[in-house]
Design a protein around this nucleic acid. Structure first.
Length: 545
RNA sequence: GCGGGAGUAGCUCAGUCGGUAGAGCAUCUGCUUCCCAAGCAGAGGGUCGCGAGUUCGAGUCUCGUCUCCCGCUCCA
């Protein structure tokens, strides 16, 4: 089971320190999020896994980290100044929002049921709606001293194409990989970290000979699909969406979107675009002599020839580009969605179960009696409630999803239902993140079985210190609760292994042969194994790779 | 930006007829506990989204405003 509502993830993320709303104490800033102590680890692990697979484990890739601020001319020739900056007006009559350049005489043209002119006078003033953020460069704020925050990392790669080529002696095909921040002034940031104004991309620009792009496009699609699965996303939750021709971005010949089944439905996780020679062709000098196939604007500014000299054919060619471009934040969200589970770990007491059942029954009656709900919503709610009642107690975590359905907020007893379900979940369920160990923010937690036993505590802390220093495993020590509580706490943040130090570890148990051994408890199975302290680094490293 | 819903402690929620804010969980401390939410005692944490107005007195009534959530445009 994975997360069924975004709220479950938002709540966990905030509660345990993965992700916070940006600038929270001042009311927030829409479309920004801060990664907390655990979130930064998870995100770093994701980026590291990507870098390892795409740079270290391949022979045809170089890395790059280009500046966020770039000469404005970059965005002129990339096409972004034209396609990312719109003057928009709103029509107060027909509620439409239009590009000012599509209007004639201040009239709403797009509402075709009206004659042009009928909306006139109801339009707001044209306002520049700039999908690129502008910022001041230099101390003097005049009209020309501005730059954009990059809306994609890709252009940093294209403008460095010649630099990388000459310094690495690469032959086609080869790629350049980059991870970095990008900024878009989205009209409506929404859905937690899914659509935000400041985000991070993991991008590859892969350069191939013209004519070979389609084969490489297919290959990259399969590569990327396999990679996402290798870090834990299940194939069932991934979809390939070939973007229809009329929806393609201005640079693209063909694009596959890799869609993931988020709680909000299937949405794009990564785009794999075939960009032809549009980008290098746009940024290069000497365009006329390079047989560029894409339609590019004449470039009078570039001082570099962004081409590849083909020794065999003795000619300069402009490579075609395949671009697998993934969202880091969307990756994090996908990982959390996939990993999240609420599992029953012990039976529910009778009173609790009865209380929940009563609350559900009351809820169902209340829906049934409510005549203000659209029939469709009502039927859906009734059906879902009945399903949950039938599948109790396993279905208990699904109540969150039920209360998230459209219309549910109009049923007042929904709050009471939530109030009954919560303690039941607390009592008998655990929340667990089934993250791949390599991605887990914390790899190992060292726990004393009893915190008021000085010797146990001392040994546990000693083991923690050894693991921290002697291995690359992020290790924490925790003694702020009973052992069961500590396990649950680690489950919730996805820690794959807990090490428990007990009396046997000290040689003070019934079986003295267990001296210098500890219990290692595995997150998913909750199984325990006795391991000699000296073997811990090897034991753990093998299982966390 | 428009339409619909909601803002009270970290979370989920109470808060009656207007009378200076409560519970459970979470967090922290102490005691206790020989492997899966224990328990007990205590502590911290809220200008009730914000700003006006009405009133002797506003979480509660009125107006404005902001933010968030759901639908319309965007796409990593």
């Amino acid at each position: 089971m994975s997360a069924t509502t975004l709220d479950q993830l938002v709540s966990l993320a905030k509660r345990r320190g993965f992700i916070f709303a940006g600038s929270e104490i001042y009311g927030g800033l829409q479309g920004t999020f801060d990664y907390g102590p655990l979130g930064v680890e998870l995100k770093n692990n994701l980026k590291q896994a990507w870098w390892r697979a795409n740079v270290y484990e391949r022979d045809d890739m170089e890395g790059l980290d280009s500046a966020i601020l770039m000469n404005r001319t970059v965005w002129h020739y990339s096409g972004h100044e034209e396609t990312f900056v719109d003057e928009l007006v709103d029509c107060l009559t027909c509620k439409g929002r239009f590009r000012a350049d599509r209007l004639r005489d201040g009239t709403c043209l797009l509402n075709r049921t009206l004659q042009p002119g009928q909306c006139a006078g109801q339009l707001t003033e044209p306002r520049p709606f700039n999908l690129m953020f502008r910022t001041q460069v230099g101390p003097i704020a005049d009209d020309d001293s501005y730059a954009y925050l990059r809306p994609e990392t890709a252009q940093g790669i294209f403008v460095n194409f010649a630099n990388v080529l000459t310094t690495t002696s690469r032959k086609l095909p080869f790629g350049i990989a980059q991870i970095g921040k990008a900024f878009r002034n989205e009209i409506t940031p929404r859905n937690f970290i899914f659509r935000v104004r400041e985000f991070e991309q993991m991008e590859i620009e892969y350069f191939v000979r013209p004519g070979e792009e389609d084969a490489w496009h297919e290959r990259w699609l399969q590569d990327r699909l396999a990679w996402w699965q290798s870090i834990g996303l299940s194939r069932d939750n991934l979809q390939i969406y070939p973007v229809p021709r009329d929806e393609l971005a201005h640079y693209s010949k063909a694009t596959y979107d890799l869609m993931y089944r988020y709680p909000i439905g299937f949405e794009e996780l990564e785009g794999i675009a075939s960009r032809t020679d549009y980008d290098l062709g746009s940024h290069t000098k000497d365009q006329a002599n390079l047989n560029i196939q894409a339609r590019v604007a004449p470039n009078q500014h570039s001082v570099a020839r962004l081409s590849y000299y083909d020794q065999e054919r003795r000619e300069h060619i402009v490579p075609f580009v395949i671009e697998p471009s993934a969202g880091v934040d969307r990756g994090v969200l996908a990982l959390l969605t996939e990993a999240y589970a609420e599992q029953q770990v012990k039976p529910l007491s009778n009173e609790r179960q009865q209380a929940v059942l009563d609350a559900l029954t009351t809820f169902r009656k209340s829906i049934d009696r409510n005549d203000q709900l659209p029939a469709e919503q009502r039927d859906r709610l009734l059906a879902r409630t009945s399903e949950i009642i039938a599948a109790l107690p396993d279905s208990l975590p699904q109540v969150a999803g039920l209360l998230d359905l459209p219309g549910a907020e109009r049923i007042p007893v929904g709050k009471k239902l939530r109030g009954q379900v919560e303690p039941a979940l607390d009592e008998a369920f655990r929340t667990v993140l089934h993250l791949k160990p390599a991605l887990a923010p914390i790899k190992v937690a060292v726990l004393p079985l009893k915190r008021n036993q000085a010797e146990i505590v001392a040994l546990a802390q000693q083991i923690r210190t050894q693991l921290q220093r002697g291995s690359n495993l992020r290790t924490v020590y925790d003694d702020t609760g009973s052992i069961g509580k500590l396990y649950r706490r680690q489950d919730e943040i996805g820690t794959p292994f807990c090490i428990t130090v007990d009396f046997d570890s000290l040689g003070r148990g019934d079986d003295t042969s267990m001296k210098d051994t500890v219990t290692v408890r595995e997150r998913d199975t909750m199984q325990q194994e006795r391991v000699p302290i000296s073997e811990l680094p090897t034991y753990l490293t093998e299982r966390i790779r």
